[in-house]
Design a binder for these strands. Structure first.
Lengths: 346, 346
DNA sequence: CTGTTAGCGCCTTCAA
DNA sequence: TTGAAGGCGCTAACAG
């Protein structure tokens, strides 16, 4: 309603709209310093802001990147959104975030919306089953898949950014081994997604390397209600897995949760069973979500360098071609030792 | 890149662009059924999506609402963003979310961006100190303040949506009173914000009504590092407040955290001090964030009806005028009894 | 019921 | 340096 327009600025500054446009687009060399100053003042005085719709209509792109996540209510993705926003702000561009609630139809619709909005590119932290669709989108704008590396490699049109999940799990194993644990378990839901498969692989490789006994506890997803919003499911699965952990044939003295949510669930379950962490049992997660810190005891975990990953993701969108499809984009995880791991009782 | 345009659809369907436009804007009565069918097919065949920038440039508004939160890494605001997105989707519109990191400058900049983007309205869950600026924005588009009622009422141009914080605190007090507690405490940082002041007022009123002893524990904000991202601060403050709780002169048997984050911190602190919740001490929060459930024991709390509040917020943006500035917009909180409260030990 | 047409605000030649 | 002018894709009169 009654926003100032470029012509108003031009009139007030006593210059042409062309100069204003040049000013707005940082072509300072094409005007005298005093012109520049006058323009600056006029813009400030009017509170002028270029209309992005018009600009986009003309140039074809918006200074905006899209972000898809399963749900912002999920702590990990909230943090991711934060990191992407921070990264985008460094490029002077906005983020439009959508929760897909893991609904493929909604996912498709939302991608189309983003395209209609002229998004420069799309970062997706939402694991699609329909990768062909993703590839189609990728022909229209750069698509960066966050933490869902392998699924998409085959198409070769999508770049990916991911923590090295194999290394992450290995880091957890090595930490436990160094503490003296000889029998450990990995607790995970059925590893359908490839990042979970990677973590599983890392676990098995590291266990073999260290000569440990490694048991796999598959938490049956039907044991807890699905929850597309906040991922309470993983927490509940972890909690109910605690009993199986204690009853396991290999008598593990430590467990790795496939991620922090699961580890926190395990921690609560163990305590409800009268076990004390880390005195009776060691526990370690992966991701380093905020509540790892708020857990009692503070959860030892393997951190994903989210901000660095987000920076790379946005960079790839702003400068596609810089990275070729399928190239590395693998980030090194970092062990964060807190208080949920200790040497096993002898 | 090479998106189909409205003319392409018109050509393929063998009709005029007007009809396509009518179709897109749901003016079905202005065309024959067979025309409608042809259009439908043509759109599907081309995968056509109207360009939102062009549409917005023409109509002046985008099907988009802005959302400002301190940080999406904060569990509560992640959930809020989720709820707003769900509400907006029901109106067929998108959400552009920004984290302000509680930086007034960024807040201002982001509001301006939103205006430049043609946002239909702005929901802010971010407590500004500069309410005049907010009022200025409100002259350009509807602004709905989420959970920061009183600060803004004086301007009369901004509508607000908030839980009844007085009632929320009272609900907590009454629950504890009903369990038999006679001396309780409220733990809060210095109540600068007005929703905290409301909670404090509700606490004091309810305590007086029930004839209890009510102590106020002000957690000194300097005791924990500030954290604009994830609000670890409140957690840490709660944790360090546990000792003061146990040493308090009024010998409280239960505590209310000003919100869940604080209550969870208190819970962890109490346990580290060897106290068992709820056997030795009862604990209750306010908000009902997800981790109230993941806390051990599951935290009794007072829930904000976030989705209903979000629906109302979006409604006010879509149909401004329906609600007059400053009108109620107060929502009833709900007591969620879980396992952190019990009768005091006799 | 359908076609024609004039902009929405900005960017970018182009000639002055 | 500047002014004029032609769109970007769509909508909404208005005239058929």
């Amino acid at each position: 309603m009654n926003e100032p327009r470029i012509q108003d600025v031009a009139r007030l500054a006593g210059v042409s709209t062309t100069s204003i446009s040049n000013f707005l687009n940082n072509r300072m060399e094409q005007m005298r310093p005093d012109t520049r100053l006058k323009i600056q003042q006029a813009i400030a005085q009017l509170g002028y802001r270029p209309n992005s719709a018009a600009r986009q209509l003309k140039t074809g792109v918006a200074a905006m990147v899209g972000l898809l996540v399963p749900s912002l209510a999920n702590q990990f993705f909230g943090a991711l959104a934060c990191a992407i926003e921070t990264a985008a702000a460094r490029h002077g561009c906005q983020v439009m975030t959508f929760s897909t609630f893991r609904d493929p139809d909604r996912e498709r619709a939302v991608m189309a919306d983003l395209l209609a909005y002229g998004a420069q590119g799309i970062v997706t932290g939402s694991a699609l089953n329909d990768t062909d669709h993703l590839a189609t989108i990728a022909t229209r704008c750069p698509v960066v898949a966050f933490d869902i590396r392998h699924t998409l490699d085959k198409h070769g049109t999508i770049t990916t950014v991911s923590v090295d999940n194999v290394a992450a799990a290995a880091l957890a194993v090595e930490h436990l081994a160094a503490l003296g644990h000889r029998s450990i378990a990995l607790v995970t839901p059925p590893p359908y997604t490839l990042n979970r498969q990677d973590r599983l692989k890392g676990f098995q490789q590291a266990v073999a390397r260290a000569g440990l006994t490694g048991e796999l506890i598959i938490a049956d997803a039907t044991e807890a209600p699905r929850d597309p919003h906040g991922d309470t499911q993983l927490f509940e699965l972890g909690r109910s897995a605690a009993a199986r952990l204690l009853a396991a044939a290999s008598r593990p003295t430590a467990a790795i949760g496939i991620n922090d949510m699961m580890a926190i669930g395990i921690g609560v379950g163990l305590r409800q069973l009268g076990k004390q962490v880390p005195r009776d049992f060691s526990l370690i997660g992966i991701d380093d979500i905020f509540f790892a810190l708020a857990h009692d005891p503070p959860l030892t975990t393997v951190r994903q360098p989210i901000q660095a990953m987000a920076d790379t993701a946005v960079q790839r969108i702003r400068a596609p071609g810089a990275a070729t499809a399928g190239d590395g984009g693998l980030f090194a995880p970092q062990l964060i030792v807190r208080a949920s791991t200790a040497a096993p009782r002898t």
